[in-house]
């Protein structure tokens, strides 16, 4: 089982992930239409790029926009969740040892205690994000089962990894569960709303170009996001 989930299944998951993400990006860009979107993409490229970069960078900075500043608590949750979710698996010692063993190279690793705290942070942030969904009427009305399932897909690798690492149960079982959950998440990224992994950047770039060229960017210092 272990051989299967870390062998063919892992390769399958990574292929779906990489091909899917690239396909999403190509699909998005090819689907842009200057006349239908009413944005002259090929014109005023410098303004367009400037608008796109501003639009992405400002939203990547915690409290960098009016929106983030308006909801400080949620902003902390969102950034904690996303930063820990992206950084922990890539720089985890265990993952890098495996990487070295299989493919002969490794990335720098986080101290194990730090990775542990970050794993917990993902789970705690997720709990509060879920509570917020239920507690606030303006979020509750938007919430679908799908939204909850996606949070569970995103958190599952962390929960199972945490249990396995601390050997809180049957190590073998939880390790395989962890690997499977990770693979489910990888596959889910291009196939679900988790595609915002790539589409966040493309969508923000598109709106940034819109405001950067057509909607005022050429007559002002840029939209104050």
């Amino acid at each position: 089982m272990y051989e299967f989930v870390t062998g063919p299944l892992a390769i399958f998951a990574f292929v779906v992930f990489f091909v899917g993400v690239i396909w999403r990006a190509i699909w998005y860009i090819r689907g842009l239409n200057w006349q239908m979107d009413r944005v002259a993409y090929g014109q005023n490229v410098v303004y367009g790029l400037k608008g796109a970069i501003r639009s992405i960078v400002r939203w990547l900075i915690p409290f960098g926009t009016h929106g983030w500043r308006f909801y400080p608590g949620f902003t902390i949750l969102v950034f904690t969740f996303h930063v820990c979710l992206l950084v922990t698996p890539v720089f985890l010692l265990g993952h890098n040892l495996l990487l070295e063993e299989r493919w002969g190279f490794r990335l720098p690793s986080l101290p194990e205690a730090v990775a542990d705290v970050m794993t917990l942070a993902v789970m705690v942030a997720a709990v509060f994000i879920l509570l917020r969904r239920i507690a606030l009427p303006e979020v509750r009305i938007l919430t679908k089962t799908y939204d909850i399932v996606l949070i569970l897909i995103a958190v599952a690798p962390f929960l199972t990894g945490f249990i396995a690492y601390h050997q809180l149960g049957d190590y073998k079982f939880w390790l395989i569960a962890h690997i499977l959950c990770g693979e489910i998440m990888l596959v889910a990224i291009p196939l679900t709303k988790l595609s915002h992994f790539i589409l966040f950047f493309l969508s923000r770039a598109q709106l940034g170009m819109d405001f950067g060229t057509k909607r005022g960017g050429m007559k002002s210092s840029g939209l104050p996001w």
């Binding site: 949620f74 979020v139 679908k144 709303k193 595609s195 915002h196």
Partner: peptide, 9 residues
């Protein structure tokens, strides 16, 4: 339509 996170911001 698809990626709206339903976050309510």
């Amino acid at each position: 339509l698809e990626i709206c996170a339903h976050c309510g911001m």
